[in-house]
């Protein structure tokens, strides 16, 4: 059953140099209980896609010009701000990239979790407090009774991210969006948080939309993957198919340009060129200037997703039936 369905999404941002439309018919499906990885490089549109699904895009200066977002079979884009407030935090929650800036520095961290609970549930502050302590224990915070009364600046980055995760889990949401949840953390702390996430996905019934550029984390955590490039989803499918039989030239390039610990060769395969700027996305297939299989057709025509035998969807003319 589909929990979240994003269909043909396109956005517009107004800037001093005129409108920018970074997304091109972004379409994906997230099933109940699934962990979906949305992968891509900087500026490919991962974060704005996530912000749209949680109804925060207008605060970032964007507007939806095309497409639909369905959550639990209801259209989210037609909801009023008041309705969205009831959904945000209760049914869809967000874990953002930087734990240093997503907590309020002047409130004790325990209170910030209590607040999230009491906004959405009618319970006494005493009950909310004991629930908060339980959540803090669940996210691996040592001495929760003490940490409850601490301020964000007294906690380390990893601890702050655990508080954010506790807030995100507080109302048992059916969808958790995690936007680069470990990018700002150290490697050993990152391992702790990813470990926590894999435990949590087993324990709670939520679905995850994990946004990241780290293919290692995707391989460890996700059930399925959508690869994004320059505002388009170029390939999506089950995690095994994407990592073992990548089909789109961009996916192939992305997977082969990461150094691996068991690698013998001295020269890495690279994707030539640079990630284009949203203001000057190429015509036709947006990957064509960097693609080694480019044909005349790629320059002018946009490839539509093709369903492959193994269940992946690929947007590339290479896979069109002759």
């Amino acid at each position: 059953m589909s929990l979240l369905n994003v269909n043909g999404l396109e956005l517009r941002f107004h800037s001093l140099d005129g409108p920018v439309e970074p997304l091109d018919e972004v379409t994906f499906n997230l099933k109940k209980g699934e962990v979906l990885g949305l992968v891509g490089e900087t500026g490919c549109g991962k974060t704005i896609t996530a912000l749209t699904t949680i109804g925060l895009i207008s605060y970032s200066g964007g507007e939806v010009i095309k497409g639909k977002v369905f959550f639990e079979d209801k259209s989210l884009l037609e909801k009023t701000e008041r309705d969205m407030q009831k959904i945000r935090g209760a049914k869809i929650s967000l874990i953002s990239q930087n734990p240093m800036t997503s907590l309020d520095p002047v409130y004790r961290v325990g209170y910030q979790i209590v607040e999230a609970i009491r906004v959405h549930n009618k319970i006494s502050s005493k009950e909310a407090r004991s629930l908060t302590i339980k959540l803090m224990r669940l996210t691996g915070i040592p001495l929760p009774e003490k940490v409850f009364y601490q301020y964000p600046h007294e906690l380390s980055g990893g601890m702050k991210q655990r508080i954010i995760i506790a807030i995100a889990l507080s109302c048992k949401p059916s969808l958790i969006i995690a936007d680069e949840p470990t990018t700002a953390l150290d490697v050993t702390i990152q391992a702790q948080i990813i470990h926590l996430f894999t435990e949590l996905t087993k324990k709670i019934q939520s679905s995850f939309l994990l946004i990241t550029h780290d293919l290692g984390i995707v391989a460890q955590m996700c059930d399925s993957v959508a690869i994004m490039y320059a505002g388009t989803i170029v390939e999506k499918g089950p995690v095994h198919q994407i990592f073992h039989f990548p089909k789109h030239p961009y996916t192939q390039g992305l997977l082969s340009c990461v150094p691996r610990i068991n690698m013998k060769q001295k020269i890495l395969r690279t994707i030539p060129g640079i990630v284009p700027h949203p203001r000057s996305f190429p015509s036709g297939c947006r990957f064509h200037p960097r693609c080694e299989y480019v044909t005349k057709r790629c320059l002018s025509e946009k490839p539509q997703p093709v369903k492959m035998n193994d269940g992946t969807l690929v947007s590339c003319f290479k896979y069109y039936k002759k």
């Binding site: 040592p142 380390s156 990893g158 601890m159 150290d186 490697v187 050993t188 702390i189 990152q190 391992a191 702790q192 990813i194 470990h195 894999t198 780290d214 293919l215 290692g216 984390i217 995707v218 391989a219 460890q220 995690v239 095994h240 990592f243 073992h244 997977l255 990461v258 691996r260 610990i261």
Partner: peptide
Amino acid sequence: KALIFSIFVPDPDEKLEIVPLQGDV
């Protein structure tokens, strides 16, 4: 050892048994 076992290998079949280090630096 902890650093080596914090590497996430980009291969879904090689799920590492992550035993993360406790605590912070």
